[in-house]
Structures are given as C-alpha cells and as structure tokens.
Design a binder for these strands. Structure first.
Length: 807
DNA sequence: TTAGGGTTAG
C-alpha cells in the first residue's frame, strides 16, 4: 500500500509544483517504508515534467505491476492532458483492470476529440470492459460541449440499454446534453421522466432554460424547485442571475441578492461576479462597481464582467482603465478580456490603445481566435482604419457570419457603400446565410448611396431573407427610404410595424426633419410621447434638427428645455450645438453667443462649428472670428473651418484677411474636402468633382451649362460670386459653373427624358449660388431636382425649394 | 481509478 507520509513538511505540500526543487529536496523519503521513491512523488501533485522524468525509471521496476500505481500514473498524465504519455503507460500493461480503461476514457473525453473518445469507448467494448455509469457521463458532457446532438442521442440510448435510465447522475448528464445541444424541450422531457430529482438535477434544468433564452421559464423553475423541497444553492443563484439580466428583471435580481445575503453566499467569487453582471446589465453599473470594489477575491471572470459592464454602458474610458489595472495586477487576459478591451477602444476610436491590445492578443496567443479577429475587424473599422480591418478579415481562418458582418459594417460605416455591397454578394456566393446584423449593414450602405431603385432591391432582399419583420431591419429600412427620398414609403413601413424601438421613432422623425417636414416630425414626436416608448437623447437631437431645418426657434427652445425638465435627460454637447444652430441660422447670433457662454459644460466643436456657420450666413465678422479662434484651437487641422472664415471675410470684402487665412492654410498644408456629387444613370453611378473635366461627356456637360446659364439669367438668376474676388467676372462665373452639383445636374438633364426627376447626392452643403441656380434650372427645364446634401434634402420644383431658402 | 449542475462574449 502506498501512502503519503503521515506528517510531511508543510511547506512542501503548500508549494508542491515548484519546479526548482528536485524530488529529494522536496521530500524526505524513508526508504524502508516505500518500495519505490517514485511512488511517493505521485502523491505530491507532481508536474508533468517530473512525471516524464520518472517514467523510464518506472518502466524498469517491479512496482510497475501494481494496479494502484498504474492507475494513479495514468490518471496523473491524463489530468495534465498528456494523453500520449498515458497511452505509453497504458498499452504494455497486461492484464489491464477495468479502472485503467475508465481513467483513460476520462482523459480522452476531457482532452481529445469526441471521435477519439468514442473510438476508445468502442475498444473498451471489444475488450469486454464492464461499463460503469461515469463512462456515459464523460461522453455526454463531451457531446454537449461539441453540440453533437446525434452522438448524444446514441449515448443516451446506450445509457438506457445499460440499465442506467433511473440513475440520477446519468440522467442529469442526459438533461444537460440536450440543453447544450439547444433541445431544451427534450431536456425537459427527460427531466420529467427522472424517478428522483436532486438539487443538481434541478440546477441542470434551470441552467438549460436560462441558457436557451427562456429566462422567464428558468425563474419559474426556481420557484418550482422550492415547492419540491429543494433549496437553491450558490450554483442555482449563479445560473439564474443571467436570466434576470436577460429580461432586465432588476426587481427579481435584487430579491436574489437578498437571498444571497441571507444565505451567506456573498463571499463566493462566482456569486458576486454574477450579481455584478446582473446589475450592470440592468443599467446599474455603479452598483456593480460597488460590489466589485468590496470583493476580497476576484477571478478573471470578475474582471472581464466588470470591464464589459463599463464598455456596454458607454463608459469605455473606465473599461480601459480597469483593463489596465487588471493587467497591472498580473491577471492573464482571456479571449473575453481582449474582446471587451477592443470594444472599448473601438467605441473611443482610440487606435493607439487598440493597437496595444492587438499586440497583447499576439503575445498571449489569442490572435488567431476567430472571435478576437472579429473584434479586431470592428475596432480597426471604428478607428477608420478600413485597410487594416480588411487585412485582418482576409487573414482570418474559419470566418464566421460575425466576421462577414463586422467587415460589411466596417465598410458601410466608413462610407464605402459599394465595397460593403460587393462583400455582401461574395458572402452570399460562399453560401453564408445573412442574419439581421448583416441586413442592417446592407440596408444602411444602400441608404448612403441614396438611390431609390437600390433601396427597393434591399427591401426585397430583407423580405426574401425572412427578416422583413425584424424590428432592427425594418428600422434600418425606414431610415434608408427616408434617405433615398422615399419619406412617404418610410412612413408606410413605420405604420405597418407591430413593435417599434426608440431607434425606429428616431429614424422616422429625423427622416421628416431632413426633408424639411418639421410639422410632420413634431406631430410624430408628440405621438411618441403619448405611447410606451420613451424618447432618448438621440430623439431630441432629431427633433431639434427638424426645428433647425425650418427655423422653428421657439419650438426648438421649448423642446430643449423640456428635455431636462419633463424627461430627465441631460443635454449633451450635440444638443447645445443644435440649439446654437437653430438660434444662429435664424439670425439671432448674439443670443446664440450668450447661449454658448451660459453652457454648464465646456463647448465643443459642434457648438462653435454651428456658430461659425451661422456667422457665414448672416455675414457677422466679429462673432465669426471669435468662434473660429476657438475652433482652430479645438481642431487645428480642419480645412473646412478655415474656408468658412475666409468666406466670411470675403463677403465683407476684407481681402487681406482672406489672404491671411489662405496663407495659414497653405502653411499648415490644409485643404477643404473637395465637393463631390453623385448621380445614378441606368445601373451606373457617375461621380463629379468640382471643376473636373474627366467625364467622357465633359464637353457636352459644359456646353449644356453655358446654354442653361443664358436661360436662367433671362429668368432672373444673378450669379452670387461673393467669395471669389481675385479674378475677372467671366472667370468667376466659370468657377461657379463648375461646382460639382451643377455638373451632375447638367449630366442628368442631357441623359434623361423630359419630365424625369433628377436625384443628386452631395458630400458637402449646397452652396448659395448652386442653390439659387438649381431653383431657376427647375423652373426653366420643368424638371424636379432632388438634392441630398450633407445636412438635408432640397426638393427643387417650379423655381422653389422645399427648404424655403432656409438651410 | 471512482459520476451529474454555474458566471464573462458581436
């Protein structure tokens, strides 16, 4: 009989795996008690290295034939996952007792594939090994972990045949296997058939429902188990807390918290972690943090959960801080850690730290993991590094639907609508079935193209993919139709929806706003207030921008004030920016400036940008200079603001100041984003840049513009060349006449038949001269011209624009 | 040698 020493040196046992000590240093071996020194080592949780060192020794000695020693050795090797070494010991043993097989099977099930485990299991039958119940529990667990329903059913059959159908261990494993294979109803059937159900069995079925998205049922079962005399334990608690989080059941979550306190379960790491997770999922990340801070012991799941809690609640800065703290405390990051950190970097657009986390993923060997790669694609895309995202995507082995979705979204979010659609087609060619995430990205890519025909294609696609009723997809469709000048189709879709998300309302209100239909936007908003869906910060941005597009100053002020007073929403920088825009565009510049001075938060780019734009419209040099000064500090390298200031000076004929700004821009190497307009003809999109002559029809286009120029002048058009001064009059006109939207309009007129409306998409705001010219063009050509610029839609018809010259 | 249930994730 081999036993460990009755009183071994305590320091040795507390650090049994320290490799720097040799065997003889670690324990004093009284040779008269033990037949072989190796025997003792096996009792000391040896390292794999140590086991391998004694293996040759063991093979030579007589001890080798002791059953207990053999089984122990195999068990230790398999515990380390060293199956090959275990096989080395196992194969030459003759005769083999059953326990050897059982131990080997355990090793296979834990560390090898299901196939290998089943192969070994078959060999056991050939070798006439008697089956014990835990042979089946190992294999069932393996089936569940690998979602192998077919194999799982086979093993289930064998459990019955072998007479274990009434065994609570075996049947709990069967229940668990069906639940893991997403057959929760089969799991429940088996559970109901069990002759006796103990706490573990109840926990298994509760977990099954919780993990299959049946949160309410899981919670009901917790009540049922108590009616059957089973007291929920810490594992029950840890199992149902995620179910509470799923349904946002803060009240139930709190009552479970009470149960934890009463049952003194609050010192368990897993329990605290699950509680923390529940609170942050229910929007109480502060409470989660309190629990986190009070925990005496934390594991990697605790950290991951807290990091993710912050990332999900929008406090990405805190998520990163915590991640850095976790690394500082020496925790080894897992895939979930890296994913959480990458998401936080993505939300912050923090490329520097994003790269750092990527490096860390490389160092920890997690970089090849497909989930990590998906997060990397998302992070680089959010940081506007689409090329790097593409590289990661292309080098990803075993791409999942999530990988495709991340890349398609990455393209769509960075203005590469065509690439997004091309990648979507490629995905379909590879027989990957799109889901609602894919469809939302595809639909928003089409929205950016602003082509109604494409919009209808995307809509059809959504219906054919059986996603035509998914609330997120339909919300994207509403947004898309509004952006493709189909605002009435958008409303029809909106009215047909059974369930609407706050984003759905926002999309529709914003759609009305950008079309200058402020009255419809506000009516819809009031309707929303009468319903169940509460407005959020974005809703108010949409409402304010709708007011801004039509000059509804008093309404704007009213809604701005009601945001905090009636809805408890704190206005953000963008809301202040919108308010400055409303006041400024209405010409109430000093009021706007005072509004900025009274802001409780530090004004940002959106605020001063709105101010500067308003000063341009209303020709105010004094305030324009003040706003520009702040903007140049906040965003020194944005060419657009410099151009705005220069134009303000030009309007006031302050040419030396104009020259000064231009020089400043030259010194900094700044350029204004070039104007660009798109028009679709047939199946092709034609792109025009200001002054470009590269289009095959260029000559005809410029000739058409000359001809149109005469016609509209006769009708009353006067060129507005305020911002151009240092050239002759005819050159001024030429420069104005080569603006991208004019080129696009002329091209549209040449290539379409009389009466056809012309749709133009422009990347910047329409300039004053183009706006005036387009009105006259719509009059003399009797054409409807619809221009979607950066801010809104302009519907030109019979010499009038839908914006009422207010934009 | 000697069985079954749990927490983080687009």
């Amino acid at each position: 009989m081999i036993t460990s020493s009755s009183s071994p040196p305590p320091t040795l046992l507390s650090t049994p795996t320290k490799p720097s000590h040799t065997l003889s240093q670690r324990v004093h071996i009284p040779s008269h008690v033990y037949t072989h020194p190796s025997a003792l080592l096996l009792e000391l949780s040896p390292t794999l290295q140590e086991l391998r060192q004694i293996l040759p020794l063991v093979l030579k000695t007589g001890l080798y034939n002791e059953h207990l020693f053999q089984t122990k050795l195999i068990s230790l090797f398999t515990k380390h996952g060293a199956l090959a070494d275990a096989v080395l010991v196992f194969n030459p043993i003759e005769p083999k007792i059953d326990a050897l097989y059982h131990t080997m099977l355990k090793g296979y099930a834990k560390f090898s594939s299901l196939e290998d485990s089943l192969l070994f299991f078959r060999r056991m039958k050939l070798d006439s090994v008697r089956n014990v119940v835990y042979n089946f529990t190992y294999l069932l667990k393996c089936c569940g972990d690998n979602f192998e329903l077919r194999r799982g059913r086979e093993i289930h059959g064998q459990v019955i045949v072998n007479g274990f159908g009434g065994n609570v261990f075996a049947m709990t494993s069967v229940v668990n296997m069906y639940a893991k294979c997403r057959r929760i109803d089969d799991a429940k059937k088996m559970f109901d058939r069990m002759p006796e159900r103990d706490l573990v069995a109840w926990n298994a079925i509760v977990a099954g429902f919780a993990q299959n998205g049946r949160a309410v049922r899981a919670l009901e079962l917790v009540l049922e188990m108590q009616e059957h005399g089973q007291q929920p334990d810490s594992i029950t608690v840890v199992t149902v807390l995620p179910a509470c989080a799923d349904i946002g059941g803060l009240r139930i979550g709190r009552s479970i918290h009470g149960y934890v306190v009463r049952g003194a379960l609050g010192s368990l790491v897993a329990v605290c972690t699950a509680l923390m997770n529940m609170y942050s999922k229910c929007g109480m990340v502060g409470v989660a943090r309190l629990i986190f801070d009070r925990m005496r012991e934390r594991n990697v799941v605790t950290w991951n959960s807290m990091i993710d809690g912050y990332a999900e609640s929008g406090d990405s800065e805190e998520a990163i801080k915590l991640f850095e703290k976790m690394m500082g405390e020496g925790f080894e990051p897992t895939d979930v850690t890296i994913m959480g950190a990458l998401q936080a970097c993505a939300d912050l657009g923090d490329l520097r730290r994003g790269r750092f986390v990527h490096e860390l993923a490389k160092e920890t060997g997690l970089e090849a993991d497909v989930s990590i790669r998906n997060s990397l694609i998302a992070m680089y895309s959010k940081c506007k590094e689409v090329d790097i995202a593409v590289k990661v995507f292309k080098n990803t082995k075993g791409r999942t639907l999530v990988s495709w979705n991340a890349m398609i979204l990455g393209y769509a979010q960075n203005g590469h609508a065509n690439e997004a659609l091309n990648l979507f087609c490629k995905m379909c060619q590879e027989d990957v079935t799109p889901d609602s995430f894919t469809m939302v990205s595809v639909v928003s890519a089409v929205a950016e193209l602003s082509i109604l025909r494409q919009a209808k294609w995307a809509h059809g696609l959504a219906i054919r993919s059986c996603l035509g009723r998914n609330v997120f997809v339909v919300t994207a469709l509403v947004d898309m139709y509004a952006k493709c000048s189909g605002v009435h189709i958008a409303r029809k879709l909106f009215d047909m929806m059974d369930v609407r998300h706050v984003m759905t309302w926002n999309a529709m209100i914003d759609g009305y706003g950008t079309h200058g239909l402020a009255k419809s936007a506000l009516e819809l908003f009031e309707k929303m207030l009468r319903g169940d869906v509460k407005p959020n910060g974005v809703t108010f941005l949409c409402v304010l921008s709708a007011c801004g597009h039509t000059g509804l100053v008093d309404e704007g002020l009213h809604y701005f004030n009601s945001m905090k007073h009636d809805h408890g929403l704190e206005p953000g920088l963008d809301h202040y920016g919108s308010m400055v825009d409303i006041l400024g565009r209405a010409g109430r510049l000093y009021e706007a400036w005072n509004f900025i001075q009274s802001m409780p938060v530090e004004p940002g780019i959106s605020v001063y940008g709105a101010m500067l734009g308003a000063c341009k419209i209303h020709k105010n040099v004094e305030l324009g200079e003040k706003a520009a000064e702040r903007l140049f500090k906040l965003e020194p390298n944005e060419g657009g603001y410099h151009v705005l200031l220069a134009n303000i000076y030009a309007t006031a004929s302050m040419w030396d100041k104009v020259a000064h700004v231009r020089k400043l821009m030259k010194r900094k190497g700044l350029q204004k984003t070039p104007g660009c307009s798109l028009v679709e003809l047939g199946n092709e999109i034609h792109t025009f840049y200001s002054g470009s002559t590269t289009h095959p029809q260029s000559k005809r286009i410029y000739a058409k513009l000359l001809e149109l120029g005469d016609e509209i002048k006769a009708a009353g058009y006067v060129p507005d060349s305020n911002s151009i001064h240092d050239v002759e009059d005819d050159v001024r006109e030429q420069l104005l006449n080569s603006h991208s939207e004019k080129l696009a309009i002329a091209f549209g007129l040449i290539n379409t038949s009389a009466g056809t409306p012309i749709h133009i998409r422009k990347n910047l705001r329409v300039c004053g001269d183009c706006h005036s010219a387009t009105k006259y063009i719509s009059l003399v050509t009797k054409r409807e011209i619809i221009v979607r610029d950066m801010q809104r839609f302009h519907h030109f018809k019979d010499g009038i624009c839908s914006c009422g010259d207010y934009w």
